[in-house]
Design a protein around this nucleic acid. Structure first.
Lengths: 221, 221
DNA sequence: GTTTATTTTTAGATTTGCCTAAATTTATTT
DNA sequence: AAATAAATTTAGGCAAATCTAAAAATAAAC
């Protein structure tokens, strides 16, 4: 059970989020997610490759190896347990917990995390509703939920559409959304419950509440 | 309220401990305490001086400035609150908390620490009996005396253990001596400076000079 | 199917924190 | 007071993680 630097962990976590269940991640996408420069990403990818945490061929994008995914799930477990602790025990509001958990998650003492888990009563989801991996790195997988409930930045696959009348299919066709399309929610707007979504490398687009309510997605938690 | 790196914080904390109430700290002493090399210490001292955290003239040793002491007390506060949390809430044993707290102490979100303090019920001492600075950096200056100096038949409470290595903790555990334990000295033997002590209603036991020198107690009157 | 644009990688610097080895200053002997 | 010993600092380097600018590879457009 090796230890990784804060920086390495942040890269691993970001790749895990971006790649979803099977996709590959691009240098620019990762640089953008981590607010860093593409050259820095390339450097780190070379390092993580030598550590066998990911598969990477120059110019071909990268995806986590099994070991990389295992490490990612460990980080996510720590993050979400701390979020739960902060909200439940320290009475932080749900929108404050993420930032603090970003720091606490890098303290990687297994006994600490397992005892924290026990202290909290083995919670299954964090304050944002995201599932918490157990001590063996297992998470509830392949969740099917409405697009309106998809966590931000979680890549998911369109699995079905509720109303299949032609007006909605026309709109879906126009937006290049079909079964199997991978997408993520970038931002939600409370004013009209519209949301900005991103499909692969296409520019982000805005979709209405009505449309989102008809789209169901699945993803590996 | 600036932030300092983990490395800077470890230096500040070590200087605070070494300098006591007034003394100055030498390069070698600090290098030894941090298990690093004197040259590295000199580098860091130059940096901390430019940040006005300490007073330092080449070859003359160093001591923390007021700001440096303030920072040190903040780190110690975080460390001891986490120790209390680990022992009290997560049921870590007495001798395990230090190591984990060494990592957690570097998460320096003020709101986190103040809420943790509140959650724990504003404890005044950590599991080793060391006082916890309050949110303003104030500490009780506990006048403690060494068990070797405790007057005969005076009941006192164990407040702190000087050397917190595992061997001594193991012995203390065996003898049922822990922080908060009340005891009295029944008799001293000049031959080897051992002493007979009594803990509550347990039968009196003999402890060595070496052990007594590491136990600090406080008492009223 | 060239040409242009975008993406990605390489090359060369920078900062932080650490190191070893050599020089320098201070302390201790004789 | 000179010589030796000890402590401290300087000089020069290394590894991690980042950056900018330039080169190379891939993708898109005409």
């Amino acid at each position: 059970m090796l230890n990784y630097s804060t920086s390495e962990e942040n890269y691993i976590k970001a790749i895990y989020r971006l790649q979803g269940s099977d996709g590959t991640v691009s240098t620019n996408a990762l640089a953008n997610a981590l607010r860093t420069k593409p050259a820095s990403v390339t450097d780190m990818m070379k390092k993580l490759k030598t550590k066998k945490l990911l598969h990477y061929q120059p110019y071909q994008g990268f995806r986590l190896s099994q070991e990389g995914s295992r490490v990612a799930l460990g980080i996510i477990r720590r993050h979400r347990l701390w979020e739960f602790f902060l909200a439940e025990k320290l009475r932080f509001s749900w929108d404050e917990v993420h930032e603090v958990a970003e720091e606490l998650e890098h303290v990687s003492n297994k006994k600490l995390i397992d005892k924290l888990d026990e202290f909290l009563g083995f919670p299954r989801v964090d304050p944002h509703g995201d599932p918490i991996p157990d001590a063996n790195g297992r998470v509830e997988i392949n969740k099917r939920i409405c697009l309106t409930e998809l966590p931000l930045l979680q890549v998911a696959m369109v699995s079905n559409v509720k109303d299949q009348s032609s007006p909605i299919l026309e709109l879906l066709e126009h937006m290049k959304i079909r079964i199997g399309t991978k997408l993520e929610v970038k931002k939600r707007f409370g004013f009209d419950d519209s949301m900005e979504i991103k499909i692969g490398r296409l520019p982000a687009v805005l979709i209405s509440k009505q449309l989102a309510e008809n789209i169901f997605v699945k993803y590996e938690g």
